[in-house]
Write a protein that binds this DNA or RNA. Structure first.
Lengths: 235, 235
DNA sequence: AATCATTGTTTGTGATCACAAAAGTTGAAA
DNA sequence: TTTCAACTTTTGTGATCACAAACAATGATT
């Protein structure tokens, strides 16, 4: 029997085209991103291997990769866990997002052609639809796709991996605000961004992206997460 | 016999306090950082294990970790190599450094106390000494330490891992300019940064850090690297 | 009752092996 | 000479095992 709190991980269908390590990596990455693993909970290789019904080897490699991306933390004890969050660290992560993503947006702007613009418009309207329904997970996913589509317009892009690392670290503690006021603001910011892109106005785009990030991030986690967020803020 | 060009890797003393994987990781990381491995050259686990006289296992883990940090690239063929550089990508990496590091500097400024200021001054004068002698490797190392000491003044720092990733990617292609004119500028920029820190002027600090990065980066690699830098720029 | 040494268990690390995919080589046909 | 198929070798992936360090539990001593 497990002495610690049990771990629930959403298992996706395993595609034979990808290696087991890749599948384990994606599964664990999603589990971290969606806050399925409690921060501070020790993760052991054999336990995860048992849950996912694979040998310890792919789990070892996936854990090391996630640790290298700052999604997991390896302590001196060689123990692996989701890093605990503090209010100050949360704020630093948000400010880092704003600095890097507004830079990435400005750098991508000159490369946005008609096709890319069409793709962005399509994502924008999909987000509007998802907001009508109120599907928060869908909104979050589409919002990521919108930002990714914007930054990857730059064919020499180098910051996306860094941005994804920040998303991973914020993931467990980040939810789109679900009250109507913030929804309204969100729509406006996206429209602002689209307008700035069409006018090729880099500065306006940075303003819009910054505002989108700042207003789109709101803490709405579970009580356990809220507790984990606060408990160590004095350290 | 090896069919490919042989790989020379500087082996450091192995400390019994660290695991073999950590030692392999640091060794390979240094090899990448100092451009000892030709971009595009395929790296095989067994070959590296043979060179470093360890089993394939630690090499596997170190390679995966370096790939997650964007220091190495895993192709679809499952082949691992140092990513090839292009002029555009080089430029993007430099601009990303400027954006992120000036942000990190501004965020660290409020936390710089007397002790940290003393440490920065000490590093600054050490850099001056190294420049008198003309020891480029020492200058590069001390310069990194200076930047690191500045950014880590912020106890809630989250961007250093991202910055180190950029350093790693630029490493093989980055050398401090060694003509006297640039040396002179470098000294000035450091002094500017120190002055901005003492005056707690965040904007002036960002200007100084940006200038330091922009002027401190100059391509001065080997002919092979220059060739590797250019050959694929059209792709 | 509290502290510390001791014992038993769990866990990460590193080595070795089997296997399938990829790369490299050879040789024949055009 | 060039092209393509068959064969051989190399290589990454994944599984299993041995071992030492870390952890948890137990018991003795003050």
């Amino acid at each position: 029997m497990d002495k610690k709190s049990p771990i629930k991980i959403t298992l996706t269908e395993r595609n034979d085209a990808v290696t087991i390590t890749q599948w384990v990596y994606q599964t664990l990455r999603n589990a971290v991103m969606y806050g399925e693993i409690l921060p501070g909970r020790a993760l052991t290789i054999r336990e995860l291997a048992g849950i996912m019904d694979v040998s310890p080897m792919p789990v070892r490699e996936a854990l090391r990769q996630l640790a290298a991306e700052n999604a997991l933390e390896i302590q001196g004890n060689r123990r692996v866990m989701v890093p605990k969050m503090t209010a100050m660290k949360f704020n630093e992560l948000c400010e880092a997002r704003i600095a890097i993503e507004s830079h990435a947006a400005a750098r991508a702007l000159p490369y946005i052609d008609g096709e890319r613009l069409e793709q962005l418009r399509s994502l924008d309207s999909l987000i509007d639809q998802a907001q009508e329904i109120g599907n928060l997970e869908q909104i979050s996913l589409l919002n990521q796709n919108f930002h990714r589509a914007l930054y990857t317009a730059n064919p020499h892009q180098v910051t996306l991996p860094l941005i994804e690392s920040l998303w991973l670290q914020l993931g467990p503690f980040m939810r789109l605000a679900n009250n109507e006021l913030d929804e309204h603001y969100l729509v406006d910011r996206h429209n602002e961004a689209m307008a700035a892109i069409e006018k090729k106005d880099a500065y306006a785009l940075q303003i819009a992206i910054s505002a989108d990030i700042r207003e789109g991030i709101a803490f709405a986690g579970t009580p356990e997460m809220l507790h984990a967020l606060i408990e160590n803020s004095g350290h």
